[in-house]
């Protein structure tokens, strides 16, 4: 079970219709790769965020699979076109089954 996990997202509050905006996301997570060993030589089990998705008004914007080489506190930045006012939904899926969610509204104006 990963501890201290906290998702963060930065999305402009306003955009003109059709604008391309920059979205920054970060989730604090230790991203244990599953390849390290502890002091006794036992493998430390993998514990990472394995999938990240972003939806806008129910439509998929991005859907990424993370593998074990992704660094601690994964930061993802991408661009999206905003056709109308609505809400971005971000979801991170943890190896331990936890799902972390965050959402941001964008207004047109």
């Amino acid at each position: 079970m990963a501890s201290g996990v906290k998702p963060r997202v930065k999305v402009p509050k306003k955009a003109a219709a059709g604008d391309v905006i920059v979205i920054k996301t970060l989730i604090s997570h230790k991203m244990e790769s599953g390849q390290r060993k502890d002091k006794e030589g036992n493998l430390i089990p993998r514990s990472i965020i394995n999938r990240f998705t972003c939806d806008f008004n129910g439509q998929s914007v991005m859907d990424a699979t993370f593998e074990s080489a992704i660094s601690t506190n994964p930061y993802v930045q991408f661009e999206a076109t905003v056709p109308e006012a609505g809400e971005f939904k971000f979801t991170w899926y943890d190896d331990d089954g936890s799902v972390y969610e965050e959402s941001k509204k964008v207004a047109i104006g």
């Binding site: 906290k6 963060r8 930065k10 604090s28």
Partner: peptide, 12 residues
């Protein structure tokens, strides 16, 4: 501050 990785530790 969003890009500054030091801010994660500030939150902690």
């Amino acid at each position: 501050d969003f890009d500054n990785p030091g801010m994660i530790f500030v939150d902690q």
